[in-house]
């Protein structure tokens, strides 16, 4: 089994993996970071979104060996229980979840979206959220939360 070195949430991890291990399984089963979810087996739902070198990606459509040498951020790496990330706080504030299964992927996508489109309006948010499915909320509150979270994330001048 090949060794990989992957920096996850700032911590350098050196592990042996099977070549066929998907990044999402590496995170969940080898590192026990179970915040990243698996919602489908066709790469369509976005429950598994993490940041790979700063871009949001579906961790079920990447092999752990492909991520060798890169930096990953998961939902566990963005805030603490005492100090939520502004986007997490916005989701809490706007009641942007029901069962919560899609939430980690939504938040990771939302953070990337907010960084790239700091002035995002509702149309942009909905368009940029096309790869994330939610079966509970109807998206209304998710969109409201992301709009508020994006404002909270703007660098203060």
């Amino acid at each position: 089994m090949p060794d990989v070195t992957i920096t996850v949430n700032g911590k350098r991890e050196v592990r042996s993996v099977e070549t066929r291990t998907l990044l999402v399984h590496f995170l969940r089963e080898q590192l026990r970071l179970t915040g990243t979810h698996v919602g489908c087996d066709t790469s369509q739902c976005g429950a598994c979104v993490v940041h790979l070198d700063g871009r949001s990606v579906k961790s079920c459509a990447i092999l752990a060996v492909q991520a060798n040498g890169s930096e990953i951020t998961t939902i566990e790496g963005i805030g603490t229980e005492e100090q939520l990330h502004p986007m997490q706080e916005a989701f809490r504030e706007h009641h942007a979840l029901q069962c919560g299964f899609c939430t980690p992927g939504m938040i990771m996508r939302a953070i990337d979206l907010a960084i790239r489109h700091s002035e995002a309006d509702e149309t942009t948010v909905r368009r940029e959220l096309e790869g994330n499915l939610c079966r509970c909320t109807g998206y209304q509150n998710i969109v409201a939360a992301i709009l508020a979270g994006a404002v909270a994330m703007r660098p203060h001048v």
Binding site: T19, R20, L22, T42, S43, C60, A61, L63, Q66
Partner: peptide
């Protein structure tokens, strides 16, 4: 060959293909 993997990896995951090796072009 493995490029972005957005078609190939879901295909492998559903066991619709069984290549002996993947050659990553990244």
């Amino acid at each position: 060959l493995l490029a972005g993997g957005q078609t190939l990896l879901p295909t492998l995951r559903q066991r619709l293909a069984a290549p002996s090796a993947l050659v990553d072009l990244a």
